[in-house]
């Protein structure tokens, strides 16, 4: 039991962070506003969790302008994809262990 808990990624302890990561893993990239709308969260909340994921180097950020509006695209990095996969595997293992 303890072994599998250690496999859990601290970065994904927060639910919103795990949700952001699931969207980015499923898509090539996603922009800030669409992410905000999809997850139904506030600007500040989303920004702070994105910053945390960025610090872990789980996501990459591309900033550009569409006309005069800033457009920020986020994408999952290779490291982030692996961490996400490991986290899901840990969840699965936990279910399996509880079934035994």
């Amino acid at each position: 039991m303890k072994v599998s808990l250690e496999q859990f990624d601290k970065a994904f302890e927060n639910r919103l962070r795990l949700q952001i990561m699931s969207v980015l893993v499923a898509n090539e990239s996603y922009d800030f506003n669409s992410l905000k709308e999809l997850l139904n969260v506030t600007d500040g909340n989303l920004a702070s969790h994105i910053k945390a994921l960025e610090k872990e180097e789980y996501i990459t950020i591309t900033k550009s302008f569409v006309g005069k509006k800033p457009n920020t695209q986020y994408a999952a990095s290779k490291l982030g994809r692996e961490a996400f996969k490991k986290h899901l595997e840990a969840l699965e293992n936990l279910i399996k262990q509880q079934k035994l």
Binding site: R15, L18, S22, A26, Y30, L38, L39, L88, L91
Partner: peptide, 14 residues
């Protein structure tokens, strides 16, 4: 529930 919400989110976003 966690796995289900991840799955539905991945689906809704794509």
């Amino acid at each position: 529930t966690e796995l289900n919400s991840i799955r539905s989110l991945m689906e809704r976003s794509t």
